[in-house]
Design a binder for these strands. Structure first.
Length: 445
RNA sequence: GUGGAUGUAGCUCAGUUGGUUAGAGCAUCGGUUUGUGGUACCGAGGGUCGGGGGUUCAAGUCCCCUCAUUCACCCCA
């Protein structure tokens, strides 16, 4: 078997694992549908340029890319947003706005696997296109929260940290950073929490090369700004700065919408979040677990220029992604994964060759009626078969022996309660529907 | 991409200073004299000890390489 191991960073899902994945998808899908989002899908394999176009050549190191037999440079998708931008862009003119779309798909990144990061992972993507106002951002944050609350998590288990690249741009302009350099400075800001002082200074110096700025002072200013966590403090700082004040109005609208929707407990202002990606243009947010590891569960933000950059119309957009790996870990640690039970509802025990044809006819009828039914392929002894029914997790055993077949009846035994009753074969389907609803007592005298 | 730790049955692990044919528990399958089960008893299958090379009369055990897992860094759409 050693020669056929699965590739590093790729997971195999045995039925009990696949059931967990199904649970994640189900909760996500339900939440998205409640918000009026429609599901879409795109190819797993795409032209390499689709991804380098948006993120630059350096992204190739993280891409699962290769040359196909036709000599095309291709890559497994590392994310779905470029495909979304292409699809929406192609038909946006004819679509009713705002567009609410979600997708659940497997994505691939060529990285060294470690905890919470694999080479293949599933991700929920939800995007809202065609609405530029902060109410759309609020809607996405609410959906993001509901995609976590739907598992039984509470607002104490995670927090959505909201930040704003627009605000950062205004602030850094005010600090004298020329516009083309701001994105680079924000990349340094992104590392404020993790980097050592020397590394940060070095990175900042690089980012403000050929400008009049002072790296030490700018780092200090960035730290001060990042530490702000209330609208009131932002107002003090923005006094007299008209664009900044205007942006704060957007903030107030965002937060009041989030509050009106009932999610104020789930969000917090945290300007340390800037997101590494340059295509974000306004509000950005990340959901973190509040427990020990504080790992990121989801991330997103506004990307108003991307669709146009991908060749589509000028279409404002906001979206987020949520991965299956960290969510699964969190749910496991909180004991919020439902127990895996998918044994058959009915196990048909065929006790001898004379009963087989009769039993199989009923098996088929029950299956047509929508019941989950299994039966023994080879005739067996009673004790063995009832043990099998128990072991595979069946709820009820249906017993077909000489006695039952002769009387035209089926014996139904509840494995859990260890009681049994007789049902005429002619009434089997309606009788078992009653049993499914009310339990074995439905057919007891 | 860099560094540390770890690889023995499906799972959890034993395995003496190197010493016969590598073990246990759980799980799986079969049985305990042919219609009532979660316990008990008996039995079976299942391992090139991650892979390759070396040292030795002898390697699961010591050495080298490699692969994988895992943790940290880098990165994180």
């Amino acid at each position: 078997m050693a020669d056929f191991k699965s590739l590093p960073g790729f997971r195999e899902f045995y039925p009990e694992d696949r059931a967990v994945l199904d649970h994640l998808f189900k909760v996500w899908r339900q939440a998205c549908r409640r918000y009026g989002f429609r599901e879409w899908e795109s190819p797993v394999l795409e032209p390499l340029e689709l991804f380098t176009e948006k993120s630059g050549e350096e992204i190739v190191r993280q891409l699962f890319n290769f040359e196909d037999k036709g000599g095309r440079q291709v890559s497994l998708r590392p994310e779905m947003t470029p495909s979304l931008a292409r699809m929406v862009g192609a038909r946006a003119n004819g679509m009713a706005k705002p567009i609410r779309w979600f997708a659940i798909g497997e994505n691939y990144r060529y990285e060294k696997p470690q905890k919470g990061r694999l080479r293949a992972f599933y991700q929920l993507n939800a995007d809202l296109l065609g609405e530029a106002g902060p109410t759309a951002d609020a809607e996405l944050m609410a959906l993001c929260a509901d995609c976590l609350l739907g598992f039984g998590l509470t607002s104490n288990d995670f927090r959505i940290r909201i930040s704003d690249r627009t605000l950062w741009f205004r602030y850094l302009e005010g600090q004298g950073v020329p516009e083309p350099k701001i994105a680079g400075v924000l990349n340094v800001v992104d590392k404020l929490e993790r980097g050592s002082p020397e590394e940060l200074l070095k990175a900042m110096n690089l980012a403000i090369q050929d400008t009049a700025c002072d790296a030490v002072k700018l780092l200090e200013a960035a730290r001060r700004f990042a530490a702000i966590n209330s609208i009131a403090d932002l107002e003090k700082l923005a006094a007299g700065d008209a664009p900044m004040m205007a942006r704060l109005e957007d903030w107030r609208q965002l937060l009041s919408t989030v509050e009106a929707l009932g999610f104020r407990d789930c969000v917090t202002i945290d300007l340390t979040i800037v997101r590494g990606l340059a295509y974000y243009t306004g509000f950005v947010f990340e959901a973190f677990e509040t427990g020990g590891d504080a790992r990121a569960l989801a991330g997103g933000g506004r990307y108003d220029t991307l669709v146009k950059k991908m060749g589509g119309p000028d279409l404002p957009a906001v979206g987020f992604g949520m991965g299956d790996v960290t969510v699964r870990d969190l749910l496991q640690s909180k004991n919020l994964i439902p127990t895996y039970a998918d044994g058959p509802e009915f196990y048909v025990m065929i006790l001898g060759p004379e009963a087989r044809a009769t039993a199989l006819a009923d098996v088929a009828a029950l299956r047509r009626a929508g019941f989950r039914v299994e039966y023994n392929f080879r005739d067996g002894k009673f004790g063995k078969l009832i043990q099998t029914a128990e072991n595979i997790g069946a709820s009820y055993a249906l017993i077909y022996g000489g006695e039952e077949v002769a009387k035209g009846e089926t014996k139904v035994r509840c494995l859990r309660e260890r009681v049994e009753g007789m049902v005429p074969r002619a009434d089997l389907v309606p009788a078992l529907r009653a049993v499914r609803e009310e339990g074995i007592k439905a057919i007891l005298p």
